[in-house]
Structures are given as C-alpha cells and as structure tokens.
C-alpha cells in the first residue's frame, strides 16, 4: 500500500503535514493527485472513476486540520470554512459532515462507501484505506 506522509512542509512557509488521506476500504482507488483531492474537497469533483458518488467528510481535529488545508487545498482552514459557508449560503450545495476527532471520521468513512477524509496516520484501521497523494 502506497503511503505518502507529509512529514515535512512542502516549503514556502507551509506548516508540516501529519495526515493521510483515507477512503472506504471497499474503494478501488489507491492514488489521487493533489489537484483532484482539492477539487473533491471543494465539491467540484463529485464522482469516483467508477461513477460512484463521492462523500466528503471534514475532520476538524486541530492537529491535522490546518496542515491538510494548507497542503492539499492550498488555503488556510479559515478560508476553507468560508468557502463551505459561501457554497451553502449562496444556494450552491450542502456542506459535508464535520467531525472533531479521528475516531469519528474513521467510523464514518468505514461505514460509507464512496466517502473520503483525512486522519492522523495512527488512527487508521482496517475499515478504511489509505490513498497516496501524487503531486
């Protein structure tokens, strides 16, 4: 299983990353580009290659939320929050479910086919699968 941890920042003053991208264990996807991950979490790419609907889950665990936002979405967690509110209050979509802990996120992704999120590496269980991020 390919696993790419953002152990150090990507440069340019970005905070160090310490998260992994996870999908439901039944998902065939093993790698994903950073750009695709960005589009998925910004609600612009809504289906997997097999046609199944993508279900995004936001993990607000403060240990990884900022680094995920900066590295994958290339915006601060505050800007990401504003983006979701903008989508909602403009009438352009429903914001994804949000959890505060890795445990809750892993439980949700493990139960929902098509879901995707990010957690601390040590929170990964057999219910979810880590996908590597290609730059």
């Amino acid at each position: 299983m390919a696993l790419w941890l953002f152990a150090v920042g990507a440069g340019g003053g970005e905070p160090p990353g310490n998260f992994v991208l996870v999908v439901n264990a039944g998902n065939d996807v093993t790698t994903i580009s950073r750009k695709d991950a960005e589009l998925i979490f910004l609600n612009k790419q809504r289906s997997w290659p097999d046609g199944k609907n993508i279900s995004v889950v936001i993990n607000e665990n403060p240990k990884i939320y900022d680094s995920f936002s900066h590295i994958v979405l290339r915006r601060s967690s505050q800007q990401f929050l504003v983006f979701r509110k903008r989508m909602l209050f403009r009438g352009q979509g429903i914001p994804p479910p949000t959890f505060k802990t890795d445990k809750d996120v892993v439980a949700f992704v493990g139960e929902h086919v098509g879901s995707i999120s990010y957690v601390s590496p040590d929170a990964v269980t057999l219910a979810v699968k880590v996908v590597s991020i290609l730059q």
């Binding site: 809504r46 609907n53 909602l88 209050f89 009438g91 979509g93 429903i94």
Partner: peptide
C-alpha cells in the same frame, strides 16, 4: 434561514 435536502446523489432542493 435556509433548508437543503439531497433527494438523490444528483438532485438537491433548497431555499433561503
């Protein structure tokens, strides 16, 4: 105040 409902994966109804 707004309410949104995802009726299917592709169809959403909403209003504010």
């Amino acid at each position: 105040i707004n309410i949104n409902a995802n009726l299917t994966d592709k169809l959403r109804l909403g209003g504010q």
